[in-house]
């Protein structure tokens, strides 16, 4: 019990500290908070797919980040080749809603199918050997990362948002990116709601919930568990793909994003508990806010610790694991 009390006190201290800083400059506080929440939305879309696959199949897909990045590159390439949209932020042919949505849909579906392919060819026949499956997906991610550098180069590229959407929106005296605030957060909320409903209200969701608890029993009841697995992998990869296009538009498409977003997904699900959708949501918000508050507020008088902010993320992970080894919402398998 003692660690929990300590953790609670620590949490209070952090809130008080941020409150104090916020009092000094509300404008910065709101921007920093929005930075954290919009990043959290992106993390959630990536991590939801990751945690879904894990929850049902106990597969830790270490190639999840590679799927994320590959989707970004596919959408970027399609936008350029089919619609002549260059990666320039403003010059060149402006992107339209169609020339943003069509690459998004295609890239997302292609990545979903790539996930199914990966599961059927490499993972299906060694079900239950979860470490071996993790090693296989690590190997795939190593190959994909190198091939993406070979084919798409090392320069960051950017998917263009439709020109009819505004660059930024102003409210409460602050100005904030429209795409981040409206599209990404909106997508995360819609996806979260759909996944929640699908899992709670549909037959597929029922099977998944049952599968998470007892795979053998679900199979014994006559459910085609292989089909369910393929379906879950499709949706999980699909979410990585969707996040890749959203992230490629919101931030950029660049080498290294694969391992960065894999690590972010791992942190999110370690905090939230592997296999739990609610956990992924909480974990994303925690990671996003810690990231952005620490980058700005880790200053005490003249001592500036913001350069060490990135370490705080991992201290968060260790703190959570010390109290709950399976994450906030994790359950023993």
């Amino acid at each position: 019990m003692a660690p929990r009390i300590l953790l609670g006190l620590l949490g209070l201290a952090v809130v008080a500290w941020i409150g104090n800083k916020a009092g000094q400059d509300m404008r910065i506080f709101w921007i920093v908070t929005l930075n954290g929440l919009t990043l959290a939305a992106l993390f959630f879309v990536v991590a939801a797919g990751f945690t879904l696959i894990f929850g049902l199949m106990r597969v830790v897909n270490m190639a999840h980040g590679s799927l994320y990045l590959l989707a970004g590159y596919i959408a970027f390439t399609l936008q350029g080749n089919w619609y002549g949209v260059s990666s320039n932020l403003l010059s060149g042919t402006p992107a339209t809603v169609v020339s943003w949505i069509v690459p998004l849909v295609i890239a997302t579906i292609v990545i979903g199918l790539a996930g199914v392919f990966m599961q059927q060819v490499f993972l299906r026949w060694n079900q239950g050997q979860d470490l071996r499956q993790a090693l296989i997906t690590i190997a795939i991610s190593v190959i994909l990362a190198d091939q993406m550098v070979a084919h798409f180069g090392g320069i960051a590229e950017s998917i263009q948002q439709p020109a009819v959407w505004p660059d930024s929106v102003s409210f409460l005296g602050i100005r904030y990116g429209f795409f981040r605030l409206v599209v990404v957060v909106g997508a995360a909320v819609v996806i979260g709601a759909l996944l929640f409903l699908a899992i709670k209200r549909t037959r597929f969701g029922m099977i998944i919930r049952a599968g998470v608890d007892d795979r053998a029993m679900v199979s014994a009841l006559g459910v085609n568990i292989q089909l369910v697995f393929a379906g879950a992998f499709f949706i999980g990869a699909l979410l990585a793909g969707l996040a890749g296009v959203l992230g490629g538009t919101m931030i950029a498409v660049q080498p290294g994003n694969d391992s960065a977003f894999l690590l972010d997904s791992l942190i999110v699900v370690i905090i939230g508990g592997m296999g739990s959708l609610g956990g992924a949501a909480i974990g994303s918000v925690a990671l996003g806010l810690v990231n952005s508050y620490a980058d700005v507020y880790l200053k005490f008088g003249t001592n500036d610790f913001t350069n060490y902010a990135i370490l705080l993320t991992f201290i968060l992970v260790v703190a959570v694991l010390a109290v709950r080894p399976l994450g906030l919402f994790g359950r023993p398998a």
Binding site: I31, L89, S158, S168, R175, Y176, G177, I251, A252, Q254
Partner: peptide
Amino acid sequence: AGLITFLKQYQQL
């Protein structure tokens, strides 16, 4: 690599 990201976010803010 970071410049494109930086300028994009700078403009948004």
